[in-house]
Design a binder for these strands. Structure first.
Length: 831
RNA sequence: GCGGAAGUGGCGGAAUGGCAGACGCGCACGCCUCAGGAGCGUGUACCUGAAAGGUGUGGGGGUUCAAAUCCCCCCUUCCGCACCA
């Protein structure tokens, strides 16, 4: 009897060995430059809830690939770190009076030492980063200064999203269906003076750049395309009757301009108050005030009933000099386009609805090319033939779009215009646990950035965590009150901190040079490792992080700091892990703890189950008996290995395995040999083909099953056996690395299986003398025949037609033709 | 409404034009065992008593010698966006 499979001792032993010998540490080796591979997983927030198997699945996917790439000879960078700034740390401070830093570092240590290391992930821990460390966030501040120098960071007062529960503002990307992405509270609007990054300046290239990202999931690209929301149209300028001003509107339908019967300004539009006639002023002011109290969600909901009122002024249609009333209404958004639209009830559903409610006139200017009978009730929004449009009559509306825009440009009342839905990235946060914004406000000099040599600007340690909506930094007067770097006069510091997404926008760059104290990273090291070859993470970051970090990378690319405009070659979005019907989360109480799993079955079992149970991009239902199945599999491998080893230990001098492929060899030997090589082929191809871990592991199970059969043979060929066992261990290494390492050592190998060359297969081993093919009659399977593997079409046809079962089917029928696909089937078509 | 993904046994899933259901879970029976929540073996889509045969990949139509796979129409589910002019 051999020992039982004991994952806990095996795993602890190898984890220690890997760590002690820094097996996974990589440096920039010039000789391996062409074989450098950067595998990255989205780094976690070190939450007080710690990690569950949903997190671990993501890390397991990247780890399996990293280990596989290493065995294929890739010089693999696989780092890990901590997205360590964020609200929960501060909320813990409020609730339990523990400092956010203390709380965060405790979580980091637990997750790193008690959770991640126990799973056997092959991280280069020497490159670990934590974004709350001043050695990291000083470079957030540095990037802020660089963006400001480039005109990409600015401060303005705007109506911004305010989360009443988190007591801070949020960027547009962080508002989901009108609710805060973190706590799901309904977001309000507040007018505040805030810092923004000008991501809109990159809107067009962020959009067109998506085309090159062919190794990104289409879903993510579609979400980003949608979010950027490019819209091509025309800007038209309407003059105002008895007033020197003018109103620009944006429209994608300039062909309908002759059908404009009114004009609408967003309630927030500054001209609303200026143009309101004395009779209307009071009602208009009341309406505008009421709009301010309505949440963004309701304001932009298509459910909201359209409402508005005339402001008592007239605009002049630049095409036909017609005077049309100016209204203000809730359905026009100030932030989009020009904040004003022309109302064309005949050809826009929203305008139609609004005009009908208020009795505004409608004028048809486009008729369908092929009119259908019956009276269309709603607006006609399709293309058609122009009418009532003066010189444009009888043109197609599509032509008229172009000509109308040209006409407007020639006559100086309009021009082509492109509008994006994307807004600038609001980065100010009224919270403590983030990066201080390196700016002071001086009475004499105004807004003054800190000089680089004063970075990092450290967070003050002693502040009050009230959670009352003011930046906690305000409660540290010694910190707030400072001297102006320019004039040395009295000044106050900015008391908001930066959005946490700032940290994750460039952390992948920092990993290439995590200890640099003179720059965020060394340019040569960046050129060596970047771009990231593989990035694995959840699709919930499709906008937010994945948009911000593309923006950042493009900025850095323009500065010449990184080698490519896009940060990541291949993005892999893994599915979520569900348990008892819903996504694992502490609040739902349905988490599977990696620690308990490791205690009971070992990390290798957890890894194998996670990869086997579903394709990595699909959602995965956690299944406890499935876990036991994975455990049984590894136990069987363990037993088979030791059964085989007993045989191998007594065997002396056997024929080399390669001779086994020959016809003279015993059938069982040949079959075992074939199965081992088949498994190598299948696993390799499955990994290459979009990370098909589930089928790869099933191929290893098939090999194990074949090995089981072989071991039951009365006599085995020790060379064949050795070959099969060897391959089994190597194929397992990316998935069950501890077990593979243990068995690899027991096979007498000196080095780590981590760097053992990935096995290759012998094409000739895959060949068999005789194969079974299918015979169909009229497409239905009627018989199975054994034929020589290399039988040609004519032979196959002859053998098939001679088959007894086929003969029965052919009785009394005429053969029309016979389709022969060598190595697959024969199909006899009869009448 | 627009966009993305998906729909296959009791379950997770295989198969990308060529034997539907690999592999695993579950279940059933058998072997081994003092014992077993261990191990080993056999079976397991559905209909029919078995066999023969038939049916079967959300539904309907089509292309093809051959369709889960390609084309057209429809239904359902999940996800993202949604008064964006």
């Amino acid at each position: 009897m051999h020992e039982k499979y004991d994952p806990s001792s095996i795993e602890a032993r190898w984890q220690q060995a890997w760590e002690k010998n820094r097996i996974f540490h990589v440096a920039e080796d010039p000789a391996k430059r062409e074989r450098a591979y950067y595998a990255l997983t989205m780094f976690p927030y070190p939450s007080g809830d710690r990690l569950h198997m949903g997190h671990m699945r993501t890390y397991t996917i990247t780890d399996a690939i990293a280990r596989w790439k290493r065995m294929q000879g890739w010089h693999t960078l696989h780092p890990m770190g901590w997205d360590a700034f964020g609200l929960p740390a501060e909320n813990a401070a409020i609730k339990r009076s523990v400092h956010p830093a203390t709380w965060t570092w405790e979580n980091i240590e637990y997750i790193r030492d008690q959770q991640m290391k126990r799973m056997g992930f092959s991280y280069d821990w020497q490159r670990e980063i934590a974004t709350c460390d001043p050695s990291y966030y000083r470079w957030n501040q540095w990037f802020f200064l660089k963006l400001r120098e480039s005109g990409l960071a600015y401060r303005k007062e705007a109506a911004v999203n305010w989360c009443p529960s988190c007591q801070t503002v949020l960027a547009n990307e962080q508002v989901e269906r009108g609710s805060c992405w973190r706590c799901e509270s309904t977001v309000e609007k507040r007018n505040l003076l805030q810092w923004f990054f000008k991501i809109t300046e990159y809107a067009e290239e962020l959009l067109t750049g998506l085309e090159a990202l062919t190794n990104w999931p289409e879903k993510v690209r579609a979400i980003q395309r949608n979010w950027i929301g490019k819209s091509s149209g025309t800007e038209l300028v309407f003059k105002i009757k008895n007033h020197p001003g003018e109103i620009s509107v944006f429209t994608t339908r300039p062909d309908t301009t002759y059908g404009a019967t009114y004009l609408v300004l967003a309630p927030e539009h500054p001209l609303v108050a200026k143009l309101a006639s004395p009779e209307c002023a009071a009602a208009v002011a009341a309406f505008v005030a009421r709009m301010k109290t309505i949440s963004d969600l309701d304001r932009t909901s298509s459910e909201l009933e359209k409402a508005g009122l005339p402001i008592g002024a007239m605009a002049i249609n630049p095409c036909n000099a017609e005077e049309i009333p100016i209204w203000t209404a809730n359905y026009v958004l100030y932030e989009y386009g020009t904040g004003a639209v022309m109302g064309v009830p005949a050809h826009d559903e929203r305008d139609h609805e609004f005009a009908r409610k208020y009795g505004l006139p409608s004028r048809t200017v486009i008729r369908p090319e092929h009119p259908v009978a019956g009276q269309p009730a709603a607006a006609y929004v399709e293309p058609g033939i122009m009418v009532n449009s003066d010189r444009f009559d009888r043109l197609s509306s599509e032509e008229a779009k172009v000509l109308m825009t040209r006409f407007a440009a020639e006559n100086d009342f309009g021009k082509p215009r492109i509008t994006y839905r994307l807004r600038d990235w609001l980065i100010s946060r009224q919270r403590y646990w983030g990066t201080p914004i390196p700016v002071v406000y001086c009475e004499r000099c105004g807004t003054v950035p800190l000089p680089e040599n004063q970075l990092p600007l450290l967070l003050p340690e002693k502040v009050q965590f009230t959670g009352l909506g003011k930046s906690p930094l305000l409660t540290a007067p010694d910190w707030v009150n400072t001297r102006c770097p320019a004039c040395h006069g009295p000044a106050v510091r900015e008391t908001d901190t930066m959005d946490g997404f700032m940290c994750s926008s460039w952390y992948f760059m920092r990993y290439v040079d995590p200890d640099n104290s003179r720059a965020p990273f060394d340019l040569n090291k960046a050129a060596y490792w970047l771009p990231v070859d593989l990035y694995v993470g959840g699709v919930e970051h499709a906008i937010m992080h994945l948009l911000y970090f593309r923006f950042f990378n493009r900025f850095c690319y323009k500065q010449g700091w990184v080698p490519t405009p896009e940060p990541v070659v291949k993005l892999f979005a893994q599915g979520t892990v569900r348990y008892h019907g819903s996504r694992m989360s502490k609040s739902k109480g349905n988490v599977v703890s990696p620690n308990e799993l490791a205690d009971e079955f070992g990390a290798d079992t957890a890894r194998v189950f996670t990869l086997f149970a579903a394709p990595p991009e699909s959602d995965l239902d956690w299944n406890d008996s499935g876990v036991e199945g994975a455990f049984r599999f590894l136990n069987r491998v363990w037993r088979q290995f030791h059964d085989a080893k007993k045989i191998l230990d007594v065997a002396v001098g056997s024929a080399p395995a390669t001779n086994v492929a020959s016809r003279s060899a015993k059938l069982a030997d040949r079959e075992m040999y074939r199965q081992a090589h088949l498994a190598v082929k299948k696993v390799t191809e499955d990994l290459e083909r979009n990370f098909s871990f589930n089928t790869a592991i099933s191929a290893i199970m098939v090999l194990s099953n074949a090995l089981g059969d072989y071991l039951r043979e009365p006599q085995v060929n020790s060379a064949v056996l050795a070959d099969a066992v060897n391959k089994l261990v190597l194929l397992l290494a990316p998935f069950a690395p501890h077990l593979a390492e243990e068995l690899w050592q027991q096979l007498g190998n000196k080095g780590y299986v981590v760097f053992a060359p990935w096995p290759t297969y012998d094409e000739t081993a895959l060949e068999v003398a005789e194969i079974e093919i299918v015979v169909q009659v009229n497409g239905k399977v009627r018989s199975h025949i054994r034929v020589p593997a290399e039988a040609d079409r004519r032979q196959l046809e002859t053998i098939a037609l001679a088959d007894e079962k086929v003969q029965t089917q052919l009785l009394g029928k005429d053969i029309v033709k016979v389709i022969v696909i060598p190595k697959r089937l024969v199909n006899v078509v009869v009448k």
